[in-house]
Structure formats: structure tokens, C-alpha cells
């Protein structure tokens, strides 16, 4: 490349770091809950400690076995899953997984899932006691005590949940929003008012896979109800983030079908401060490292000294 005299040549590596509340990330590339296990599974494929942050599998108070088969179906340009929050539970996480994450200097966010307000509070306080710096509240689980509503679809419940968590947890609180609502703006505003540090969006899009066959003279069906992810949901995600990001001042972590660097730029362009990689981790387990490199190169090529400069210009 020929550099003309009028161009400013960056001599140092660009600064990719950002803040989500008190949590400092080396870069804005993070991995979505449920697609990165507890990080140790990825050590063969990527330098996990170089990733901005990894978000753990959704963790509940008690271990969960999850749903029976079938759990997955590939779609044209995406997939549908119905895992049912299978996880080892917060106590086993603290005992078995936390030491690995800490020892390897991995920046991580614990995804917290509950079935009642008290469960979120209990898990958050266990996280606080154990020095965990950031949690992401998974608010699309059925809420038994609130009459089977989903936490994530009611502004009032969200406000209460986030306020209560913020009282006992001193680290960064992120709320992961569901796209399965008519208008996400009131939800985002409530979350900000309640003191959340960031919003991540979107969770999977509710969908149904139907396999039909014609047997013994009648049409039979097999159904798989679950959450859609992958490139198929990218337009839904971009529209959602574009809608909420102008209404709030806290950072938005965008996700939904990011497979390439250009997808990431699209999410940044509609107001994301950071991004999460989801389904792409399954197909390209080294993708987080590739995107970090691409971002660094992009900033160098365009003479942008830091990632903050890039997002400020949006």
C-alpha cells in the first residue's frame, strides 16, 4: 500500500476497548449465551482470553436437565432450538467453571435465568459473593409466580427485577431482551430507568418447525417449537436495535445472525456498542478471533485510532 503524505499513519495498534458499566472489555466482540458453553470447550479453536467477553450458558439456581429430543432443527439460513435451559446450576458453576475462567484471565458475563424474581436475586447475590463482575439477565423464561407471564414482556416486572438486582449486585447488569413483543421501546426505557448498565438484544425469535408426512391415508405432523437464530433473524435484530437504540442512553449489545465482519458493522451502524456472536460459533468456532482481527485491521486501514471513535461517528 502506498501512503500519501497527507494521510496520518497509525503507528500504534488501535484501541478496541469499551466499557459496559464498570466492566472493561478488551474489544466489543463477545459470544452469546448458549453458544459458547462455559468457554473451556473453545480453547482448542480460539484464544478465549482475547475475546471481549464470553457470556456463559444460561445458569439457573438448580441444575436443569432441559427438554427431551428433538432439540434442534436446521433451517434455511438458520436454526431452531429447544434446549430448555439445560445447565449445571449456579453452585456447580461456581465450584467447577469459575476457577477455570478466572485462572485463564477470561472476561466473562454470567447469564442468569430464573423462574421467579427471588431466583434471579439469589443467583445475583451468589455472583456478588463470588466476585463475579457482570451478569446478563435472561428474561424470557416463564414466570410462574406472575401468572405464567414472561419476565421480558412486562415493563413493570422488568423494572422491579432490575431494581432489585441492582440493589444487591454491584457489578455490571445487562438485560437480554426478547424480540417476541409488539413494541420493545417501553421495555428498554424501563430497564434503563431501573439502572441497568446495558441491554443485549435480541434473544431467539419464537418459531415452529413442522415436519409432515402422509401415512395410512392421513397427514401427520411432528412439531418443534423453539427459538430461531442465525442469519435468518438478522433483519429482525437490526430493526429491533435500530428502534431501541435511539430511545435509550445505555449501551446496546447487538446480536442476531452475525456471521461476517460486515454483519458486525451493520449492527454498529444501527446503534450497537458491542456485538455478540451466536449461531456462528457452532459453525466457525474460531470466528470471535477472526472478527477481532478484522476489526483491528479495519480501524488501521481507515486511520481510526480507536473503536470508540468509530462508534461515536455513527
Amino acid at each position: 500500500m502506498v501512503i500519501t503524505k497527507t494521510e496520518i499513519k497509525i503507528t500504534q495498534k488501535p484501541d478496541l476497548s469499551i466499557n459496559l458499566g464498570k466492566l472493561r472489555l478488551k474489544n466489543p466482540i463477545t459470544t452469546a449465551s448458549g453458544t459458547f458453553g462455559y468457554a473451556d470447550e473453545f480453547q482448542d479453536f480460539v484464544d478465549v482470553s482475547s475475546i471481549g467477553a464470553i457470556v456463559t450458558k444460561g445458569i439457573t439456581l438448580k441444575p436443569r436437565k432441559g427438554n427431551p429430543q428433538p432439540r434442534l432443527k436446521e433451517l434455511r439460513n438458520g436454526m431452531i432450538n429447544s434446549i430448555g435451559l439445560e445447565n449445571i446450576g449456579i453452585n456447580a458453576f461456581i465450584e467447577k467453571k469459575l476457577p477455570i475462567l478466572q485462572e485463564k484471565d477470561i472476561t466473562f458475563i454470567v447469564n442468569v435465568a430464573g423462574f421467579a424474581l427471588e431466583e434471579y436475586i439469589k443467583i445475583a447475590s451468589i455472583c456478588e459473593t463470588n466476585g463475579i463482575k457482570a451478569i446478563e439477565l435472561n428474561v424470557s423464561c416463564p414466570n410462574v409466580k406472575e401468572g405464567c407471564l414472561e419476565f421480558g414482556t412486562s415493563s413493570e416486572i422488568l423494572y422491579r427485577l432490575v431494581s432489585m438486582v441492582k440493589e444487591i449486585f454491584t457489578g455490571t447488569v445487562i438485560v437480554k431482551l426478547t424480540p417476541n413483543v409488539t413494541d420493545p421501546v417501553p421495555l428498554a426505557i424501563s430497564i434503563e430507568k431501573a439502572g441497568a448498565d446495558a441491554i443485549s438484544a435480541i434473544n431467539t425469535v419464537r418459531g415452529l418447525d413442522v415436519s409432515v408426512s402422509f401415512e395410512n391415508g392421513r397427514l401427520t405432523k411432528k412439531l418443534l417449537k423453539g427459538g430461531m437464530s442465525g442469519p435468518a433473524i438478522k433483519p429482525v435484530a437490526l430493526n429491533y436495535i435500530n428502534t431501541i437504540s435511539h430511545e435509550i442512553n445505555i449501551p446496546v449489545i447487538g446480536m442476531g445472525g452475525i456471521m461476517h465482519f460486515n454483519d458486525m458493522l451493520e449492527f454498529i451502524a444501527v446503534g450497537s456498542t458491542a456485538i455478540q456472536i451466536g449461531t456462528a460459533n457452532f459453525t466457525y468456532p474460531g470466528i470471535a478471533g477472526d472478527l477481532i482481527e478484522s476489526l483491528e485491521q479495519f480501524l488501521i486501514n481507515n486511520n481510526i485510532p480507536s473503536y470508540e471513535n468509530l462508534i461515536k461517528g455513527v
Binding site: F45, R71, L72, M79, E86, F282
Partner: peptide, 26 residues
């Protein structure tokens, strides 16, 4: 054989049940 998305143990798609220490585990 069971359907999975990742092949490396994180998607939890390919769960089967196995007897382990008198318990049924995934």
C-alpha cells in the same frame, strides 16, 4: 448419532440419556 449444531459440546442439541451411578444423566 444425534443431531447437533456444534460438534464440540456446547449447543446441547445431541443429548442422550445414560445410566451413571444408578442415576439417569444427560
Amino acid at each position: 448419532e444425534e443431531k447437533f449444531a456444534c460438534g464440540i459440546g456446547v449447543c446441547m442439541g445431541c443429548i442422550i440419556e445414560v445410566y451413571e451411578n444408578d442415576e439417569i444423566v444427560n
